[in-house]
């Protein structure tokens, strides 16, 4: 976690097996390794009641094979977070009491899965999260309201309206995004250099 942070910024933990009737895992890329680490501490039969949704991001076949080897009751592999969200929505809509939710991977994955869970009426504090992998940010442009995915630079260009945005640490769970605010509004002739800082 970056050293300086503010209170709207999510705090991530370490996944650990919870007592519950069933378990839903949503992970992307290196988030898979958080599930594998949890598996080492899980009681026998734990994954027989688990559903794993995995978005590999790049073709890291070692993760898919290792996750399947846990023998989850359901295993899903999706091509992108966006593609996986309708399935997640449906799964949560049909969920029974006693479902435990675990999210692992990039901030974008955790944030968007959390957003779907909130919309399904699940309290965010009941959800386990663990950050692994990239710190790339989802950013809402406060001006045009468009969301830019996978922002790695400071400042960053809004993919919708083109303004040069200061990416703040202020974070909205409801939008699953950090806030982007025009960085040179006071003097548009100032064009700060972009630096790769969210990696």
């Amino acid at each position: 976690m970056p050293a300086k942070t503010i209170l709207s910024r999510p705090v991530y933990g370490t996944l650990s097996p919870q007592t519950g009737k069933s378990h839903l895992f949503v992970a992307d890329a290196e988030g898979a390794s958080a599930i594998l680490d949890l598996a080492k501490k899980a009681p026998d039969g734990f994954f027989a009641r688990a559903h794993i949704m995995f978005i590999p991001d790049t073709s890291r076949s070692q993760f898919q094979a290792a996750l399947k080897a846990l023998k989850p009751a359901q295993f899903y592999e999706g091509p992108s977070i966006a593609a996986a969200l309708p399935r997640l929505r449906q799964t949560l809509a049909n969920a029974h009491m006693g479902l435990r939710i675990y999210l692992a991977g990039t901030e974008g994955l955790i944030g968007q899965a959390m957003q779907v869970a909130l919309e399904a009426g699940i309290d965010h504090s009941s959800i386990q999260t663990e950050h692994r992998g990239s710190w790339a940010r989802r950013v809402q442009c406060v001006h045009c309201k468009g969301i830019t995915e996978n922002v790695t630079t400071q400042p960053a260009t809004c993919a919708h309206c083109g303004l040069l945005l200061l990416v703040r640490d202020h974070y909205s769970r409801r939008l699953a995004a950090f806030q982007g605010v025009c960085i040179n509004a006071e003097d548009p002739s100032e064009i700060p250099q972009k630096e790769e800082i969210f990696r």
């Binding site: 503010i6 209170l7 709207s8």
Partner: peptide, 22 residues
Amino acid sequence: WSLDFDIGMNFFEWHAPVPLAH
């Protein structure tokens, strides 16, 4: 400050950007 961004937040979260007071 933006209502559209802050709606749904709690007291500490919407005040997060304020310096020194926390």
